[in-house]
Write a protein that binds this DNA or RNA. Structure first.
Lengths: 126, 126
DNA sequence: CTGTATCCATCTGGATACTG
DNA sequence: CAGTATCCAGATGGATACAG
C-alpha cells in the first residue's frame, strides 16, 4: 500500500510553455485586451480613429504597435484603401474572434464584480 | 426622428478605472495568477518551498514580492510559526478565493484551447 | 487620416549574496 | 527555511515631431 502522493504532486507543475501561460503572455500587453474587446463591441471591425476615441489613454504609438502585433498573429486583418488620406479598417479574423472569448469572460466577470474591484482599487491607491 | 447613434457610442468608453481595467491590473503581474492558481490547486494553502517547486521559473525574490502584494490586498493570509527555522504558510482568504474565479476560467479556457495556443506560440517564437 | 521615428523615464524582474 | 538587500539589463510605454 503506497501512501498517496503529496498534494502538490497530484497536478503537473506549470511547464514554462503550458497553454495557460501562453494565453497569459498573449494577452499581457497593456492595451491588447482592450483593443480586442473594443473591436468586438464595435461589431468586429473599426478604424483607428474610432479605437482612439473608444479607449481613453491609448496613444497612437501603442495602438499602432499593438495592432501590428495582432496582425502578425493573424488575430486582426488590416484592410487598407490606398487613397489620400488612406482609409484603414482593422477586422477581427476568425482566430481573433476565438481569443476574444476569454477576454469577454474576463470583462463580464469584472463588470459583475465591480463592487469588489472598486473596494480593491481604493485600498490599493495610497 | 433622430438617427441612431454611431455604433461606437452605443457603449460607454473604457473609463481609466472601470472594473475590467482594474481586474486586468490586479492580475497583471507575471507570477500573480500562477501563484493564486497554485494555491488553489494545493487546497488553498501552501508553504513557500512548495510554491517554488510547483512553479518552474519563479525566483525567491519574485515569489516573496508577489505574495507580499497579495497579502496587502488581503487575498492571502500569512501564517507564521516563530520557531527556528520558521514555518510559514500562505492561505487564500475569502477575498482571494473570489479572485481565483476568473483565473480558473482563464486557465480552463487555456487548457481547452491548447492546440490553438501551441500554434500561436510556435509562430511567435521566431 | 494613418503611420513612423526618436528620445527617454519608468517598471519589471532576474542574479547574487547575505541575515535570522 | 524564509526573507532581505543590491545591482543591473531589458522591456514597456508615453511625448513629441515628422511624413505620405
Amino acid at each position: 500500500m503506497t501512501p498517496p502522493l503529496p498534494e502538490e504532486y497530484r497536478h503537473p507543475p506549470f511547464d514554462e510553455d503550458c497553454a495557460p501561460r501562453q494565453l497569459l503572455r498573449l494577452l499581457s500587453g497593456k492595451w491588447t485586451t482592450m483593443i480586442l474587446h473594443s473591436l468586438h463591441l464595435l461589431g468586429g471591425h473599426a478604424r483607428p480613429t474610432q479605437l482612439m476615441r473608444a479607449i481613453p489613454g491609448l496613444s497612437k504609438k501603442m495602438m499602432t504597435q499593438t495592432l501590428k502585433e495582432l496582425e502578425q498573429r493573424q488575430w486582426v486583418y488590416r484592410d487598407i484603401e490606398q487613397v489620400m488620406p488612406p482609409i484603414v479598417e482593422y477586422r477581427l479574423t476568425e482566430l481573433g474572434q476565438l481569443f476574444v472569448e476569454p477576454i469577454e469572460m474576463l470583462y463580464q466577470w469584472g463588470i459583475a464584480h465591480s463592487e469588489a474591484l472598486n473596494r480593491a482599487y481604493s485600498s490599493e491607491k495610497p
